[in-house]
């Protein structure tokens, strides 16, 4: 099996690892770095549970090879909290009751974070469309949308 050495910045920390070229970023995060907050729900880009932010863009980490993350900056759920304090977006999820089993939550939070950073003034329809690729089987989605709308409002300073 061919291996390659990569250097990636994950949650602000630099990691240098020699890995098989067929390893996905999701596997790299979970198995090499022990960052199990990134969940694998389908491993084929259909559920969004493994969403991370790569250089500002939300991506299904199961569809990205780890070697493609060479030199990239990756943000996972473990890097979202601000030290011991929750990120306001995480707090918004808690306040809105947007979590049930919690398996989709990390991917959902990262999709939401990228969405608000790109468009801090989204309509409800834009948020709904924005999380379309993240499947949640428990909540019925609407509280997740509420959480994202509330956080966007806070970011804009309306709240």
């Amino acid at each position: 099996m061919t291996h390659k050495t990569i250097k990636a910045t994950v949650n602000g920390e630099v990691y240098e690892r020699t890995i098989p070229v067929c390893m996905t970023l999701a596997e790299f995060l979970r198995e090499e770095l022990g960052l199990t907050g990134t969940k694998i729900g389908c491993n084929e880009g259909e559920c969004g549970a493994c969403t991370v932010i790569i250089s500002g863009k939300p991506m299904n980490s199961c569809l990205v090879l780890a070697v493609e993350a060479d030199g990239a900056e990756v943000l996972t759920i473990e890097g979202v909290s601000q030290g011991e304090k929750l990120h306001p977006l995480q707090q918004a999820f808690l306040d809105a009751g947007a979590i049930q089993c919690g398996f989709c939550t990390p991917g959902m939070v990262l999709t939401a974070k990228a969405l608000i950073e790109e468009n801090p003034n989204p309509t409800e329809a834009e948020v709904r469309k924005g999380i379309e690729g993240n499947i949640c089987r428990c909540t019925g989605y609407n509280r997740i949308i509420d959480a994202i709308m509330n956080e966007a409002e806070r970011v804009r300073g309306d709240k």
Binding site: I77, L94, G97, I99, G102
Partner: peptide, 13 residues
């Protein structure tokens, strides 16, 4: 608020 919320929203669960 749900007691398991914090662990779930931080990826610690």
């Amino acid at each position: 608020p749900r007691k398991d919320g914090r662990a779930k929203v931080t990826g610690k669960s």
